[in-house]
């Protein structure tokens, strides 16, 4: 047989093998984490692990509830801050602003999406922490060190902004121009067009973007770890410290082999993160798939 065809056959097999490895990698990560967290799942029931607040690894008590609640508090508050701002700003850039402004802002957003999270963390420590400690918390009548849920949410919000803005601008730009023109020609104001036609048309895309923003926020480690205080408790208000799951894993990797079952507990924390994020990503993919089907 011809050498050229042999090379082609080999390349086909080899590249197919690598591609299958990508799918296998996803399964392997899940299996690896389950395998490593198996010892702790054998000793404690799943409901005890997920819904107990008692965390004392030395005594063999592993309750993840305070970490889970911290994680969700920070994620939800950061999205509550970032989402309205992103939606309004993306709408302004696509619908109202001159093209030249979009051309300046878009590269800036992309550059900032690439800035490492440790940089955002430093900014949080330098700017947000003192601001919350000295101005915002006293204003509401609380005393805090500044390392609290609100600080974590603010830093996370500004980290999610470039990612969400980029996707939202794409979603809004996909609305056909005919739809805008016909709405305006019926006598609607510009704002009515945005509110009743553009946003409604984009609703699934906006939802998918938000879910992606949530899954990015849940997994963020270093920046949040630096500003959130890392105290094991269920935060009662925004000015108390929290301890989200990624921070738990990152902070304790050093001593995890010295305490029995501690490594299994940390791997279980990673498993929880993986499960939550895969769930959100699948939800987002499902919504987007339904949208593309309904359009074509």
């Amino acid at each position: 047989m011809n050498l050229r065809i042999l090379i082609d056959r080999f390349a086909c097999r080899f590249s197919a093998f690598l591609s299958v490895c990508c799918v296998a990698l996803l399964a392997l990560i899940a299996v690896g984490l389950i395998y490593k967290s198996w010892p702790i799942l054998l000793e404690h029931s799943l409901s005890e692990l997920l819904f107990s607040t008692i965390w004392s690894p030395m005594k063999g008590k592993f309750g993840f509830l305070s970490f889970i609640i911290s994680t969700f508090q920070i994620t939800i508050f950061s999205l509550l801050i970032a989402f309205p701002i992103c939606l309004l700003s993306a709408t302004y850039l696509v619908e109202l602003a001159p093209r030249s402004i979009l051309k300046i802002v878009l590269p800036l957003i992309d550059i900032l999406a690439g800035v490492p999270s440790v940089i955002y963390g430093i900014w949080g420590v330098l700017m947000i922490v003192p601001c919350i400690r000295d101005h915002i918390a006293p204003f509401f009548g609380y005393t805090t060190s500044g390392y609290c849920i609100l600080t974590g949410s603010l830093v996370l919000a500004i980290m999610v902004v470039p990612v969400m803005m980029h996707l939202l601008i794409q979603v809004l730009q996909a609305v056909p121009h005919e739809l805008r023109d016909s709405t305006l020609s019926l006598g609607a104001t510009h704002w009515q067009m945005i509110k009743l036609v553009v946003w409604r048309k984009c609703l699934p895309g906006i939802m998918a973007t938000t879910i992606l923003g949530i899954s990015k926020a849940i997994g963020e480690t270093i920046a949040v770890l630096m500003v959130v205080g890392n105290v094991v408790q269920i935060p009662k208000n925004l000015f108390e410290s929290g301890y989200p799951l990624p921070a738990l894993i990152a902070n304790n990797y050093g001593e995890m082999l010295s305490i029995p079952q501690y490594d299994a507990a940390l791997m279980f924390a990673a498993l929880i993160l993986l499960a939550v994020i895969l769930f959100f990503n699948m939800a987002s993919a499902y919504i987007l798939k339904r949208v593309t089907k309904s359009i074509t």
């Binding site: 392997l28 849940i218 997994g219 480690t221 894993i249 993160l273 993986l274 895969l278 959100f280």
Partner: peptide
């Protein structure tokens, strides 16, 4: 793509 880097670190 969506899996956070800390999970990759653990893996």
């Amino acid at each position: 793509w969506g899996i956070p880097s800390i999970v990759f670190g653990a893996f």
